[in-house]
Design a protein around this nucleic acid. Sequence first.
DNA 1: CAGAAACTATATCGATTGACATAGTCGATC
DNA 2: GATCGACTATGTCAATCGATATAGTTTCTG
Lengths: 231, 231
Amino acid sequence: MSLVTTRQRPKTQTRGEDTRRRILAAALDIFAAEGYEGASTRHLAERAGVNLPAIQYYFGSKEGLYRAVIGDIVDQTEAHMAPLAPKVSAAIADQSTPPEELLELLCEMMESFVVLVTSGPQIESKRLLFARAEVERTAGLDALHESGMRHMFQPCLGLVSRLFGKPTDDPEMVFRTLALIGQLLMFCHDSTARMLKTPELDEASVRTIQRLLREHTQAIFRTNLSGVKSV
Amino acid sequence: MSLVTTRQRPKTQTRGEDTRRRILAAALDIFAAEGYEGASTRHLAERAGVNLPAIQYYFGSKEGLYRAVIGDIVDQTEAHMAPLAPKVSAAIADQSTPPEELLELLCEMMESFVVLVTSGPQIESKRLLFARAEVERTAGLDALHESGMRHMFQPCLGLVSRLFGKPTDDPEMVFRTLALIGQLLMFCHDSTARMLKTPELDEASVRTIQRLLREHTQAIFRTNLSGVKSV
DNA sequence: CAGAAACTATATCGATTGACATAGTCGATC
DNA sequence: GATCGACTATGTCAATCGATATAGTTTCTG
C-alpha cells in the first residue's frame, strides 16, 4: 500500500495525454458531486469514456486520481493568486504601508477569491470541491486545505493583523479573518447554489457579490479602527 | 424498499428507550465524523454497544437511523430559536419598528446561533453535521437544510431587507444575508477547528466570537445605511 | 514489415457493505 | 410459573466496492 508507485505521466504522451485530461475532467465533476467515497471507479471510468483499468493505468489508483484532481485545483489556485501575493507580502513587511493600502489589498484578495470560485472551466465542480475541503477529511484534501491556508488565509490574516496592529497569533485576529473569509466561502456551498436556483452565478451577480463584500469589509475596518479614515 | 416500515418508538419503552438514545448518541458522533456513506452499520452498532440488527429493530434501516439523528438536531434547533422567532416576526411585520431595534434583533439572532453551535451535549459532532448539511446531499439532510432556512436564514433575510428597505427577493438582500451568516458558519468547519487546534471552543473564545460578529454586523449596517445611527 | 511500447477490453478476485432470517434470552403480567 | 412481547446473538445473503490478471489492440520506430 505504501510502495504503490503512482505512475507519473508516461514520457511519450501521444494519445494518452488526451485520455488523461478527459479522465481528470470527469473525475473532478464526479468527486465534487458525490464525494470521494461516493464516487465509484466504475462510474468515473464510464463518465470519462474509458474502461475501468485505465484509471489504474494512468493514476495508479482511485486515490491517485483524486490526488491528481486536487493537485490540478491547487495549481490553478496558486496561479490565480500569484500576481497579488508578492504585493501583499511586501505591504505586510513594510512597516510604513498606510492602513488604507492594507485595506485595499484585503479587498482585492477577497475579490480575487470570488473570481477564482466563479469563473473558469468546470467552475461549479471546483466550487463544490472547495466547500468539501472545509468539511471532509479524505485522502488528498489536506493539500487543498493547506493551499487555501497558504494562499488565502495567511495573507489575509497578515493584513488584518497589521490593520489592527496586533500579532497574527492573537485569537481575535484569527477569528476576524475567519469571519471575513466565511462571507465569501458561503458562495461555494451547495445549499446556497440550490437556494439561489442559479447553479452558475452570472456575471452581474458576481459583480454584485464583489461590491457587497467590499462594502462589508471596508465598513468593518473603518468603524472598528481609528487609523483608517474615508476613501 | 419503499414500503419498509421505519418502526416508530415502541409503545412500552422500558430498557429500550435507553438503548435507543445510546444508539442515537453514538450515531451522531460517527455520522458527523465519517459522513453518511463512510459510517458502516457495524461501526455504528459497535460504538453504541449493541449488536447489528438492533439498528434495524429500532430505526428500520441505516437511513432511518440517520433521519432520526437529523430529526433530533432539527428539534434542538427549533427549541433553541423558539424564544427569538416571534419577536423577530413581529418586528418585521410592524412597519414602525425602528432600525436600531431591527439591527439589535439581527445581532441577537447571530449570537443565538453561535450559542447553538458551541454549547450543549456532543456539540463537536453537531457542529460538523451542520457544516456537512451545507455541502453534502444525502438522505435526510434536506430536513436539516430546510430547518436552517426556516429558523435562521429567512428571519435574518427579513431583518436585513427591512433594514435596507428593499424586498426580500432582491438578490442584494439575499447575498448580504448569506455573507452575514457565512461569517459564523465558518466556525462549524472541520478545517477551522483543526487550525485553531482547540477542538472545543472554550467559553472565552465563544464570547469573543460573539463580540466580533456583533461589531462586524453593526459596522456593516451603520456604514451602509442612512437610517441607522449610533448606539 | 517486424517488434516493442502504449493503451484497452473482459473477467474475476477478495473484502466490505446493508439487510435480514432464525433462534434465542430477558422481563413483566396474568 | 407459564406465557407473550420486548429485545439480542449468530450467521449468512446478494450487491458493490477497489484492484488486478490476462489477453488483445493500436501506434510508433527501425
